[in-house]
Design a protein around this nucleic acid. Structure first.
Length: 441
RNA sequence: GUGGGUGUAGCUCAAUCGGUUAGAGCGCAGGUUUGUGGUACCUGAGGCCGGGGGUUCGAUUCCCCUCACCCACCCCA
């Protein structure tokens, strides 16, 4: 027997779950459309070199590679240094941002000056799955390409907050920070620039593991004790962005980051839903392509983030040779779903078909009736084969049909349909022409 | 990549301190008179006890290996 389990890190969604997912997607799409984003569709897989080198070393390892095919594969296998990089030439997309950057670089003549696009589609990562983490999951991205102004960042932030609120996430928090502020902090603490990345990984864990553990990690990562202490001082000053600004006065990039965020928050103030937003100087996103403001949405019910994003002004340049500014975010559909499940944020499940036509010996009669009613706009199921009434009723209940319609010899002769309301158990003889009308009441 | 946990019927789980026919609930099939359901009752089908090896007179049970899944770390949506 072949296993019926879906592949590791993937899952099947039965109708009820698929409907809930559809509800989330519909909601998000309508928010994106209201914000004037337009749909974009890109292939599920890309050339491997399109993907490689955009997500950092760890990210590169998580790309789902696709084996070369036919003679190319045979040749690669026979080659002297067969490895996952010589045996594969394609990869499943790892996110929707890099494909967007490729598209922007490729179709400059065909897209507007400010390109607002959204894409809701699955992505794949060769991760080890765990709770709320899958190898196939769906991202809901919205990005603005071609705009350097912080107004674009504010639009993104506002769209993100609106989508979350529309779904009912009133206690989500959107943490906001800036790449330049992080760099400024590193500078001000006297940490060598080449240690920035590794030091920030430790700082990012602050809200999880606390200062003592972070300090330990910093030392392990090669940061001096003085710098670690200074770093802590800077981050513990308090007073939010203003308090931090003083410590960063000597850093040009630090000042730029503070100015950007001041502008961003001012704009955000005048936008919808920004009460979810919160400045957090310890937020450091891992993805290597971010260059400016960075965002991450979290929810108390879930480990890890439910959304992430930021500004990436140099990513398009990796395809084009010249930089094009861009900022965007991504909602993690599967994680949103998990939290909404737990908080019961879904509307009541839709009911089944309006009616089931029972099998009374002649399927052509059933199908004809169903067709008439469907033409009148109703949702109608047909019991497809001879079976006892008990079975037909059980099935009607199983699929949630509201009415059972019976057309046997006597009804045909009388030109009527027996309509039984499965909730009230009342039933009536209805002239055939009036059935649709009757069902709608 | 590192560490931990769990694998018994379609599903959720029992039990066997190593012993002969491994159980329950749910689900499924049939029935309680053949054009009227959801409840109830009766009956039934369905398990190489994840796979391989070892110890033993005997292994689903103990030991080793392996695979699968889950959880945590890492990283991320």
């Amino acid at each position: 027997m072949v296993s019926t389990k879906p592949a590791k890190g993937t899952r099947d969604l039965l109708p009820a779950a698929a409907r809930r997912r559809q509800y989330i997607v519909d909601t998000i799409r309508s928010v994106y459309e209201q914000h004037a984003f337009e749909p974009l569709s890109t292939p599920s897989f890309e050339r491997l070199d399109t993907l490689m080198g955009k997500y950092g070393d760890e990210g590169d390892q998580l790309i789902f590679r696709i084996l070369k095919r036919g003679a190319n594969l045979v040749r690669a296998l026979a080659g002297p240094e067969a490895s996952q990089d010589t045996l594969a030439d394609l990869g499943l997309r790892y996110d929707l941002t890099v494909p967007l950057a490729r598209v922007v670089a490729a179709y400059q003549n065909d897209i507007p000056k400010y390109f607002r696009r959204y894409q809701i589609a699955p992505v794949w990562r060769a991760d080890r799955p765990q709770k709320g983490r899958f190898r196939e999951f769906t991202q809901c991205d919205a990005d603005i390409v071609g705009c350097e102004s912080i107004v674009a960042d504010a639009e993104i932030l506002s769209c993100m907050a609106t989508a979350l609120k529309r779904l009912g996430f009133d206690d989500a928090v959107i943490r906001v920070n800036h790449r330049d502020i992080l760099f400024g902090i590193i500078e001000a603490a006297g940490i060598a620039p080449e240690l920035e990345g590794t030091a920030l990984v430790a700082v990012d864990k602050l809200d999880k593991i606390g200062w003592d553990a972070v300090t330990t990690e910093l030392l392990e990562r090669g940061v001096t004790a003085q710098s670690a202490a200074r770093l802590r001082e800077i981050l513990e000053v308090g007073g939010g962005l203003e308090g931090l600004a003083e410590s960063l006065e000597d850093s040009a990039r630090g000042r730029k980051g503070v100015a950007d965020l001041n502008e961003l928050f001012a704009l955000a103030d005048s936008a919808v839903g920004t009460d979810l937003v919160q400045f957090d100087p310890s937020l450091a996103r891992g993805l290597s392509y971010y260059t400016g403001p960075i965002f991450e949405a979290v929810h108390p019910k879930l480990n890890g983030s439910i959304a992430g994003g930021g500004r990436y002004d140099t990513l398009v340049g990796m395809f084009l040779g010249r930089d094009v500014p861009a900022v965007g975010f991504s909602l993690g559909l599967d994680r949103l779903e998990a939290v909404m499940e737990e908080l019961e944020l879904f509307p009541a499940a839709p009911s089944g078909p309006d009616a089931l036509v029972a099998f009374m010996g002649d399927a052509t009669v059933s199908v004809a009736l169903a067709t008439e009613l469907r033409a009148a706009g109703l949702c109608v199921d047909v019991f497809p084969e001879a079976a006892k009434f008990k079975k037909q009723f059980s099935y009607a209940q199983e699929v949630g049909a509201r009415f059972l319609l019976m057309v046997g010899d006597s009804e045909v002769a009388a030109g009527t349909v027996t309509v039984k309301d499965l909730r009230s158990r009342e039933q009536a003889q209805v002239p055939r022409a009036d059935v649709a009308q009757h069902l709608r009441q």
